[in-house]
Nucleic acid binder design. Sequence first.
DNA 1: CGCACCTGTCATGTA
DNA 2: CCTACATGACAGGTG
Length: 592
Amino acid sequence: MIDLPKCQQSLQDMELTDILWKQDIDLGAGREAFDLCHRQKENELQKQKELEREKQQQLQREREITLMAQQQLDEETGEFVSHTLPSIETPATALPHAASQNVDFTEEDGQAHLFYDCMQLLADTFPLVEAIEAESSFLNHSISFPADISPDMIPSHQVPPAQAPMLLTLQPPKKTPPDLEQTWVELLSISELQQCMNMQMDDMLEPAAYSTIGPTKVQEPNNFTDVQNITDTVAANILSPENLSTFEGILTSVLPPDSLIQTTLKPLELSTTIIKDERCDMNHSDFRSKSEIVSSAASSVHRGSPMAKVPKEMPLKSIQDFKCNLKETYASNTAEAMVEIADSGLSLDASKKLNNSRNIEKKLGNRDSDTDEMEIKPQSTAFQADVHKAHSSVTFTRTQVKGTKARQPKVDLGMKGSTYSPLSKDKYKKSTVSHLSRDEQQVTALEIPISMDMIINLPVEEFNKMMSKEQLSEAQLALVRDIRRRGKNKVAAQNCRKRKGESVVHLEHELDSLKEKQDHLLRERAETRSSLQDVKQKLNSLNQEVFSLLRDKEGQPYSPKEYSLQQTLDGNVYLVPCTKITLVMNSSKQQF
DNA sequence: CGCACCTGTCATGTA
DNA sequence: CCTACATGACAGGTG
């Protein structure tokens, strides 16, 4: 390397910087990305920021410690119970299991804790949840020890972490948003399953009734059980070739011609078929309506939750306001988590709940959300912060580098959608040039006096009013419209994906239910077949028994091949020659 | 390095 | 015609 005088060196640096900048300007990199002083400043800023973050984390930990010092960990349910018990063991021995699952206690855990509170709130608010909860004790986290159980009787692994020093090494069971969502999914599927099971229990009872009805209908009313009775009747009704015409008359007068053949076994088969068909239809619609109830109940939770109410129009904030510190972020993320719970138990991506709940409210035209505004203020902050972060990735052109996507490490927030993953070194340098996204930089560069939030979220009328008021240039107008379009489309895409995921989950549940239904119907068919077989067998033996007792004029037994026992609706049993039956059948078919 | 997944964006269609 | 929204397709980032 050639040694150059300082001034010359810096000149060369400048030139190099210019070249690099010119090369990268197409990619949207700012001039300052190549400025040495700028980079040094960035590093300092970054260090400061890290220090601040550490402070915030420390504060957060302390807060958690004070909170959790009043609570105890139930190792079986993994829940914290606000019931303080005297210390009976040293922390190390008291909670071996808990110590073994030692993970850094982060804000995430605090969130998990809040999730439980939210779940409890939901459980109190919505009967559906209560119903589910009644079946699954999963959510029943407010477990308290029975009065007659002294703390000494509590197993050591259940001893609460009320003993402060070890709190840092403890953590409640990880209930990150995806887990929670999974829980909801499971709970819903449990309720669906349960309903399905209930239906099947009903069905299992009904088939029993109908399968007993089937055979008895054939046997009892026809008096086939009393063989002697039958033989007596038949003896009086034996149709000799002479009085066949009489029998025909009786048959055709008592029975519709086409039902003659059914007087043996057909009635049973028909009734079986009819009953089965009816049951199938009933079950199907029943099942469908029940699953609809489940889904509509879920969606009513979805829509009806007071926590899902988000003010349609977020308070407008300047770009500076977005520089919220970790504490605010944590608080807002907690609120976000609450919204998430209220929003949907089925959705897949936690990050999308907020936008979705806003969207839902928009659709429902929920204007009275002002009353809730105070409650969800942190959340609106979260939303704006989210919007800000999200828009940090909004690029001006497709070819631009998207390195400005300033995601925070997941450990910080533990919420996927609102967390920012670490950046590679140079990208991070670039991103720390400014916390503004490209669009935001453009907005600043073009001196557009409207915030990104306003550009995207203002109703069209107000937006147009503002645009006309501001007297923007062509370039400014184009940029603003682009930003608005992209911002809206981003939200739309998020909603679209969320719906897609939900529909996948729903279809999976439906598939499971249908499989169960199919199994049930197959079992039912097998049972019906076997009972039908029994009936046929009994009828056959009965027939043989009757024939063995009957005698013709010469005292010879009637051949079952030549004669057949027929019963009319009036209860009389006739011995009919098979040839005659065939004739009657044919004539009735022709009539039909 | 290839892969799956996530997310933002664009193009296009619909209401 | 304009706007908002939905959705398929694509591309870049990330683990």
